[in-house]
Design a protein around this nucleic acid. Structure first.
Lengths: 131, 131
DNA sequence: CGGGATCCCAGTCGATACTG
DNA sequence: CAGTATCGACTGGGATCCCG
């Protein structure tokens, strides 16, 4: 075995596919990409604009990851200039419903969350002064 | 303006609270913690075991983040030894339904995902040999 | 147009040790 | 028990250049 015991966590990952899968889905960009692709085939540059603030590199990386997981299909049209379309698979469409639930929840409660943060920060600032 | 144009993304973050909120929720550990806390008050060490593979540090960090966002309440019992309970707020309970949807989706499709990965990797390995 | 390859910094994470 | 503090390793992710 490896001298580093870092692989304890690797073993956990191996034993728990759920964590593995969720770790892939529940990442900063994946949700946005999935939501963007769920409305039908979409091109690379369209995605780049659709997913607020993502870089070309991260978009590519995430698209590959999702393609690998079988959530997206990549269709290349050998034209000039090239054209590539990404489409959500049925499996991804199933997930999409839960995703919509999350985003609508976020939209509904974002004001409350902002308020909670402000309150929390104010409280901690006061505590810092008192110290 | 700053010489670096890195802060373009910072501006995007500021303009889009949704991305901000989702970035917090859709992280590797948050989902697990939320699911674990949704079943009633739960103690720190119980959480540590419940959330598969999380380190003590990350647990603390995430708990603070969720508390700040108003999703968790932290109740301290000044006993010896100390006892701290974390409870999901109503807002978090609303989110919980979508979370369950995601995890059950993951559980349902994890085999298909594993197969897709294997197929994808095999395909790429073959392509590498052919090069 | 849709990437791949490389560089590199900043932040994040895990391991470990210490504390009330 | 429930954290905090510190440190080093790793990596996410932007910038940049290039290619079919």
């Amino acid at each position: 075995m490896s001298p580093r015991n870092t692989d304890v966590s690797e073993q956990v990952q191996a034993l728990c596919p759920l964590v593995q899968v969720m770790g892939d889905i529940a990442d900063k960009w994946t949700i946005g990409i999935l939501v963007a692709t769920a409305h039908g085939p979409i091109r690379f540059t369209e995605l780049e604009r659709a997913v607020n603030g993502i870089s070309r590199r991260m978009l590519t990386l995430n698209l590959r990851k999702l393609e690998r997981d079988g959530l997206l299909t990549r269709k290349v049209y050998p034209t000039v200039p090239p054209k590539v379309e990404y489409t959500a698979t049925p499996m991804a469409m199933e997930l999409y419903d839960s995703l919509v639930g999350m985003t609508s929840w976020a939209e509904k409660h974002r004001a409350a969350i902002a308020a909670a943060r402000a309150s929390y920060d104010a409280h901690r600032a006061a505590a810092a002064v008192a110290s």
